[in-house]
Computed example of a mutant assay.
Amino acid sequence: MKGGVKDWPLRLFLALALPSVLLAVWWFASDDSTDVYWPPLRTILTAFPDVWTGDRLREDVLPSVLRLSAGYACAAAAGVGLGTLIGSHRRVRAVCEPALEFVRAVPPPVLVPVIMLFAGIGDTMKIAVIAAGCVWPILLNTVEGVRSLDAVMSETARSYGITGVARLRHLVLPAAGPQIFAGLRQALSIGIILMVISEMFAADNGLGFTIVQFQRGFAIADMWTGILLLGLLGFALSVLFHTVERRVLGWYHGLRDATRRSS
């Protein structure tokens, strides 16, 4: 714990070093730009507060975040639930794996027109698109995590009569936790991409819709502010996810840090 407290300035420096360098390169590379499609970074930063006012954040950013949260939550529940079921039973896995591999190979953006036919063009369609794309990394990583359950731990739990929900709660899910969170981390980036794509189809608000409107209206600097905002949103969600992961998997990270120090 003390080591982690002492290391936080270094970790903060390492986290901010590359973004700072990239912004500096962007600033100086675009400083003399007269290309309408590649405005100077200072122009984009100047336009940012004027574009993303409180009203626009409430009308466009908040609905996008709510759709992302709903789709991501549905994918997490379905992926962990089905992944645990498939990973725990060999016969179920043998039956489902060919179909899962086939469906997983279909790019999620291709499903947007199909989902629109059944779910319409409202929020239900956008949430379904996000969930349909996010579920696969969660499901497959959960299956692998459950399959890799330590045989000794499993036999020990059986010998002590730990079965059913107790076994699932105290053995299976904790043991598969690192793999599950790896899938959740992959799904988060996919969800952000699908959030934007789904809002480009028959939408009237949202980040994707607004960025497309800026592009169609030839407001190029405003369009770039939307892209910057998407990057900031992704970074904020990544930090939030990392915080939750460190809390839920504290035992795992503590064990890994102890192993590194001992080696």
Score class of each variant (00 low, 15 high):
Asp50Met: 05
Val65Ser: 00
Ile86His: 00
Ile138Tyr: 01
Leu249Thr: 09
Ala15Lys: 08
Asp60Thr: 04
Thr84Ser: 09
Ala76Asp: 08
Tyr37Thr: 05
His253Pro: 14
Leu82Lys: 03
Ile180Lys: 04
Leu188Ala: 01
Pro39Met: 11
Thr142Ile: 07
Ala94Phe: 07
Arg11Asn: 14
Val112Gly: 00
Leu184Lys: 02
Arg58Gly: 09
Trp224Tyr: 12
Val239Ala: 01
Ala99Val: 03
Leu14Met: 06
Val51Gln: 10
Leu62Ile: 06
Ser154Asp: 15
Trp38Gly: 04
His170Gln: 01
Val65Tyr: 00
Thr243Lys: 15
Ile121Thr: 15
Leu10Ile: 14
Ala76Lys: 10
Gly4Trp: 14
Leu23Lys: 11
Leu173Val: 11
Val244Arg: 09
Phe201Pro: 12
Trp136Ser: 02
Met195Tyr: 01
Trp251Gln: 13
Phe218Ser: 13
Ile127Glu: 11
Ala258Pro: 07
Ala47Trp: 00
Phe28Gln: 14
Thr225Pro: 09
Val80Phe: 10
His89Ala: 03
Pro108Tyr: 12
Lys126Asn: 13
Gly83Pro: 07
Leu16Arg: 01
Gly54His: 09
Leu237His: 00
Gly87Pro: 04
Ile127Gln: 10
Met195Asp: 05
Phe28Ser: 13
Leu12Pro: 09
Leu10Trp: 13
Gly254Thr: 13
Thr84Ala: 05
Ser154His: 07
Thr124Glu: 11
Leu229Asn: 06
His170Asp: 07
Gly226Tyr: 05
Gly234His: 06
Glu101Tyr: 00
Ile162Phe: 02
Arg169Leu: 01
Met200Tyr: 09
Ile190Asn: 09
Gly4Thr: 11
Thr243Glu: 13
Leu82Glu: 05
Leu117Ser: 07
Gln186Asn: 00
Gly145Trp: 03
Phe118Asp: 08
Tyr72Met: 15
Pro39Thr: 05
Met200Asn: 10
Val65Asp: 00
Val61Ile: 08
Phe181Asn: 00
Asp60Leu: 09
Asn141Thr: 04
Ile138Pro: 03
Glu59Thr: 12
Val92Met: 12
Ile193Cys: 03
Val36Tyr: 07
Arg185Thr: 02
Val212Gly: 02
Leu22Ile: 11
Ala221Tyr: 06
Ala202His: 09
Pro49Ser: 03
Val110Tyr: 08
Leu68Gln: 08
Ala29Ile: 04
His242Gln: 14
Tyr37Ala: 07
Asp60Asn: 15
Ala202Leu: 13
Val61Cys: 02
Ile193Leu: 13
Gly226Ala: 09
Ser189Glu: 00
Ala77Lys: 05
Pro9Asn: 11
Val114Thr: 02
Ala94Gln: 12
Val36Phe: 06
Gly87Val: 01
Ala76Tyr: 10
Asp32Trp: 05
Arg216Tyr: 03
His253Asp: 15
His89Glu: 00
Ala236Leu: 11
Trp26Asn: 12
Ile220Lys: 06
Ser154Val: 03
Ser159Gly: 07
Arg147Asp: 04
